[in-house]
Design a binder for these strands. Structure first.
Lengths: 343, 343
DNA sequence: CTGAAAGCGCTTACAG
DNA sequence: CTGAAAGCGCTTACAG
């Protein structure tokens, strides 16, 4: 009896239920001022007609899209994919969907710039993941008149969530120093001109700080820049380990992927881990376990959730506008078996 | 002079240019039947007013959203993240945006089911990545009346793009057999009850086929199921390698991540790769290089692009409706240094 | 080549 | 508690 050729609209539901479209709208959205009996009847009819409100019409009328733009420079890398994934789940749980903006280009270390038409009137808010924005982009985002939050990268005057990179590096370095190492290398300072600069710099700084605190001289020729790939880091470590008379007994790595590269380099030199050389990373990458890598864990899920919580708080009817709040999440030392006292 | 408090609409542009909104609409969208002079004037005015059409209004009026839904079961895993990334770029190049549907749940191997309200009227098409759909879900997708394409998993009666999994496994196995191995294990058959079953089964079949072709008996106790994590695969390999009198000289792995686990297990047994044991994977994971892993490469970018091309072909005005076409992309043996003749 | 008007499918004051 | 009507900002025949 209720077979229909086309999809049903709110008008169909109203007609079938014998009420006005306004009442259908209120009933289905759970607004008050609808009698329980009416609401129930409308619910039934809507269900029978397989009615689903057109999101596009709802958006136009209400001015809200229930969509959050998530802007990512390198969507397939571990860190970014993990954050996007957790943001997606947190948003889904609250009735939002995610429109994904991939800023990656073919050229290494280059990215697309944000444009007004990408986001304009499309999203209720935006989360940017570890992107150093230009002034122009910040202006553009401001002109959108929607809340914005940054994960990982601190944008001037804007809310952000992330970890304390310097502290994470300090934790890693302290673990190594406490084991008795004094000949320690750091791989993971920033590449010159690299797009992402805050994290590498902070982590390298954390490393230097701890050495100084312990009166260990910092050998700057053992503080190496890398493009943060395992492959490049492997090559760097291969070099540092070449001279048996003069080589580090431990590596503090700016990330787990860097540590993977160092691990491979050590093996290629027939060095035992951790007997001959200790390696510690930062991240707790999903492959850290197979490498038995000691590392400082950062919780991507917690960061994604915190970003969503912050953002939606601003979106709430009586939303706060603490737009420059900085949420700093804790990190945690995970001891596996890639670290030990020096030989 | 053109300072404005609120954002400008098509009405503002029309007024400022002294034409009707219909003309503005045609001019800005590049439709014909607009005089060059008028078009140019409208363009200028629109630019001055920073006019960007409201996508939500455009969608409601036109019935098209310029958005493609991308449905993913495990968004942060290498394969899925890579496909999503390439799909995003291909769509962006053609003026579409991606709405990301993450079906992952906390429970292992379980996923969310698609519901009508997730996609209804939101997207012009959907790409599902390696998802075995239920009948209900297929019905639902059919009821959406938008084109659908599956990457990786062949859905009955629907278009798909992917690689030939059995052929990839055959390539890998042949490489091993040609090196002279006869004691060969395969890790990567499907887990019982796993959600993803086609790929593991096909790859295991490819392995068995080649052994049979070469008259090598298949030891089923050396064809192992895994959850496809490096960690679990490492444990399995640790077991297989425990008995020096009776162990495989080579491992064909259903994926590179599996191969990483096997690599670690071999090292833990103080076995040399490839001298004592050969390992080959399938994928060409971004970390395959540091592992010096010989593997059979699948091109995620090509797969994402092919999916987008297929989908948009159906969306074109005079679109084909070859809805059950299967695009099979080639794979390629990449020889690094994890494989050699048996000891 | 251009415009007036209907229509897309909802939400939201405003009345009652 | 419910309805009539305006409005969200476009696109699309239909006229001219």
């Amino acid at each position: 009896m209720t077979e229909r050729s086309g999809p049903s609209t709110i008008v169909d539901v109203a007609a079938a239920a014998g009420v006005s479209v306004a009442t259908v709208s209120r009933a289905l959205r759970g607004l008050d001022r609808v009698s329980p009996a009416t609401r129930e009847r409308i619910r039934k009819v809507a269900e029978e007609l397989h009615y689903v409100a057109s999101p596009t019409a709802t958006s136009l009328a209400s001015g809200q899209t229930q969509i959050i733009g998530v802007v990512v420079p390198f969507p397939s890398r571990w860190y970014f994919a993990g954050i996007v994934s957790s943001i997606g789940k947190a948003l889904r749980a609250r009735g939002y969907q995610v429109l994904l903006f991939d800023l990656e280009r073919d050229v290494f270390d280059a990215r697309l710039t944000l444009t007004r038409s990408m986001l304009w009137k499309r999203v209720d808010g935006v989360i940017s993941i570890n992107i150093p924005m230009t002034e122009d982009e910040l202006d553009l985002l401001g002109g959108l008149h929607v809340p914005i939050i940054s994960v990982g990268y601190r944008l001037p005057g804007r809310a952000s969530v992330g970890i304390d990179d310097a502290a994470a590096a300090r934790t890693a370095t302290e673990h190594i120093v406490e084991l008795g190492h004094r000949d320690i290398a750091f791989i993971g300072a920033g590449m010159a001109g690299a797009a992402l600069i805050q994290t590498p710099m902070s982590r390298a700084d954390g490393f230097r700080t701890v050495l100084r605190e312990h009166g260990i001289p910092v050998r700057e020729d053992w503080v190496l820049r890398t493009d943060w790939t395992a492959e490049h880091s492997r090559e760097l470590a291969l070099g540092l380990l070449a001279d048996p008379e003069q080589r580090p007994t431990a590596f503090v790595c700016g990330s787990d992927e860097i540590a993977f590269g160092v691990h491979m380099a050590a093996r290629e030199h027939d060095l035992r881990i951790p007997h001959d050389v200790s390696i510690i990373g930062i991240d707790d990458h999903y492959l850290a376990g197979v490498f038995a890598l000691t590392t400082v864990r950062q919780d991507l899920t917690a960061q994604g959730e915190a970003a969503v919580t912050q953002l939606l708080a601003e979106l709430a009817p009586n939303g706060t506008t603490a737009r420059d709040e900085q949420v700093v999440l804790p990190t945690e030392l995970i001891v596996r078996s890639s670290t030990a006292p020096p030989p």
